[in-house]
Amino acid sequence: MLTVLYALLYYVAAIIFVVGVAKRVWEYWKTPQPAVIPTTPAPVTRTGVVWRMFKEVAFFESLWKSNKWIWIFAMMFHLSLWLIIIRHLRYFLDPVPTLIVLAQPFGKYAGFFFVLGALGLLARRMFVPRIRYISNPSDYLMLLLFLGIGLSGLGMTFVSKTDIVGVKAFFLGLMTFNWQPLPTDLPVLVHLGLVALFLIIFPFSKLVHAPGVFFSPTRNMVDNPREKFRPVPWLPPVDEVQYDPPHGS
């Protein structure tokens, strides 16, 4: 029964996640950005922009300039999230590629840093008056969701060991439409339930910052408005316009 429920949940969550994110990306892709508005100084070549964007998404360059505290917690949170995701690929791939095997020990302990990062971010939201002012209930809930995912995951790994082989069989089964029973101990159910929730809310929430940042015109545009002519799509071409008459005529 629980197996069916979770199987369906994961199919729905996966569809919402993929379609939802694709729709968002498509919207950003097709919405025009008529004026060239990079925050300057900005790169004057495409390669330069790629480098700028790399520094932004890999090292949070702007955040570093802004605030070292947030930077530390954000870095801790996102870096460990990456390691965790890479480590988790082992539950979807058979055989497990060597690279992911190598990442295993890092990914395992990254869970602690992930929780620590989320706690830091939560503390900032609760105790810094300016950030408390801008926080909505959803901002707290999102962090609690991550904490729940992280703690339940750590619980499965370090407290009460789960039948992880069974979990892997369940996911491989989902992908091949050959359903296998899901081990039903509580940490697994909580962990997987929260992750499904995460996938579902992703496209409708601020979590779209992850794909969104690549479309940010102040970061992804080449600084070349003088060199390259880009007409505004909804304005008539310049040879069809009427000029204002001179003063006094």
Partner: peptide
């Protein structure tokens, strides 16, 4: 406007309320 300017649409969507700007 959200159909005409990617900046407007995107910026309204992707703020995570991190607080980096609050004292700037």
């Amino acid at each position: 406007l959200r159909g005409k300017f990617r900046s407007f649409r995107l910026f309204l969507d992707i703020c995570v309320k991190c607080g980096a700007c609050t004292d700037k």
